[in-house]
Write a protein that binds this DNA or RNA. Structure first.
Lengths: 119, 119
DNA sequence: CTCATCGCTAACAAAATGTAAGTATATTTC
DNA sequence: GAAATATACTTACATTTTGTTAGCGATGAG
């Protein structure tokens, strides 16, 4: 009862990251340059601080972002995409294009998302 | 204290779909052509039947796939990408490329994923 | 009849996520 | 110098989502 070659282990691995809530948004937020914790939480107000710090740790472990600590008065911490993270830019762009062509502004928080109401 | 335009509502909507567990894999599985319930569950053995049927319903509601019922002896049901679904092919390809370049086969089920086994 | 396959659904357990509050450090306001 | 504010988190606990196991109803094989 071994299981077959599946689709492709690397593709699966990729969607272990991208297929997790918030990760896509976070990566996208950092494409435009490094940001601080607060900046990101302001950009994505629906995400809780807890989730933000957890996802950041995950993405750091995955080698997609780096956490830079600047020991200034008060300490400043910036998150920034690594080379591996920057390499996701084409993915983000493809998603953007698809979203622009096929999705409505209305459509967000509708079907597959955080939908509680389902007749 | 209104909250800003965020990143982009459509992009968010896109990741409501893509950022959900299994959805990326499912869409990818259907890029190569329509498949039956069983085919998909064999392709992705780590996904339970329950999740498969739930995600399929979600993707159908989102207009990404269609469920075709062929009333043969025994009924055959095939899932197939719509035009909207097919339009995600470039996204899938971008992910594939990234995965090929930056991910190891070993790396799957590692950090952010369902990491129970860490040999 | 008994068993297996297909495409699900139901019941319940486990894990992920959300919410609200708190923490440590440091600066600003009174 | 006490209180308030800011940052980057963490903790405790509620809620939601996912996983696991079992089963159903139809069909067909042995």
């Amino acid at each position: 009862m071994e299981h077959q070659p599946l689709l492709c282990p690397r593709f699966e691995a990729a969607f272990c990251i991208l297929g997790k809530r918030w990760n896509g948004l976070l990566i996208h937020a950092l494409v435009s340059g490094p940001k601080r914790f607060k900046d990101i939480s302001t950009l994505i107000p629906t995400m809780s601080d807890k989730m933000l710090s957890e996802r950041m740790k995950d993405l750091e472990t995955a080698g997609i972002i780096v956490r830079n600590v600047y020991p200034e008065t008060p300490v400043r911490i910036e998150y920034e995409l690594t080379e591996k993270g920057q390499a996701l830019k084409p993915v983000m762009e493809a998603v953007e294009q698809w979203a622009a062509q096929w999705l409505d502004d209305q459509e967000f928080t509708q079907s597959g998302c955080s939908s509680k109401d389902q007749s």
